[in-house]
């Protein structure tokens, strides 16, 4: 089963909350590009969910390079949930995106295992040694920590909540 039916139905037309009447009247009001999605915690659902997120107003308007960074960051964070948080049982991943001018605020929640030690890994780049000993893993958190800003993690009851910002340099509109 790929992406949650409700979330997918909203994919083409992203889930914009209807703005309050006074927000419409305000000419300075930034366009609302908030959205929230729910995926199954499988690699294929994450792949399809990412395609969905990239079409959302928050990400579709990014310049090509920022969009590549956003896709990489979201893929790493979501796949970590699939591989580690839901290593023993499976469940849903919920993600919200909010455009805030110079960045996009991301929040990802799941009901999987807590992060070991109650904190995200430090994500140091694995040592590059001889070819036969090259690292095949350990790049994910390095990439997240290199590309994101203001990373924070909370264990709230049975849930994990990871928040970070995707910096934005260029908007296409």
């Amino acid at each position: 089963m790929p992406v949650d039916g409700m979330a997918c139905a909203m994919c083409a037309e992203a889930p914009l909350p209807s703005p309050a009447p006074d927000a419409i009247a305000d000419p300075d009001a930034a366009p609302r590009t908030d959205g929230e999605w729910t995926f199954d915690a499988t690699p294929h659902a994450v792949r399809e969910g990412l395609a969905c997120l990239l079409k959302s107003p928050a990400l579709a308007s990014l310049g090509e390079e920022d969009r590549g960074t956003a896709e990489l960051l979201l893929a790493e964070a979501l796949n970590n949930v699939v591989e580690h948080a839901y290593a023993r049982w499976t469940g849903d991943i919920r993600i919200s995106l909010r455009s805030e001018g110079s960045h996009i605020q991301v929040r990802i929640t799941d009901q999987g295992l807590p992060m070991p030690g109650g904190a995200p890994p430090r994500g140091e780049l694995p040592e590059i040694e001889a070819q036969e000993d090259l690292p095949e893993g350990g790049f994910g958190w390095f990439l997240i920590r290199s590309l994101s800003e203001d990373l924070s993690y909370l264990r709230l009851g049975d849930s994990n909540a990871l928040s970070f910002r995707i910096p934005v340099d260029n908007w296409t509109r």
């Binding site: 590549g68 896709e71 990489l72 893929a75 790493e76 796949n79 070819q131 036969e132 090259l134 690292p135 095949e136 893993g137 790049f139 994910g140 990439l143």
Partner: peptide, 20 residues
């Protein structure tokens, strides 16, 4: 157009499979 850390790990593994 897109490669994540899993994809990178796989490319590295192939390089190692080539031998010395």
């Amino acid at each position: 157009g897109f490669l994540d850390s899993s994809g990178l790990g796989a490319v590295v593994a192939v390089m190692k499979a080539l031998g010395p």
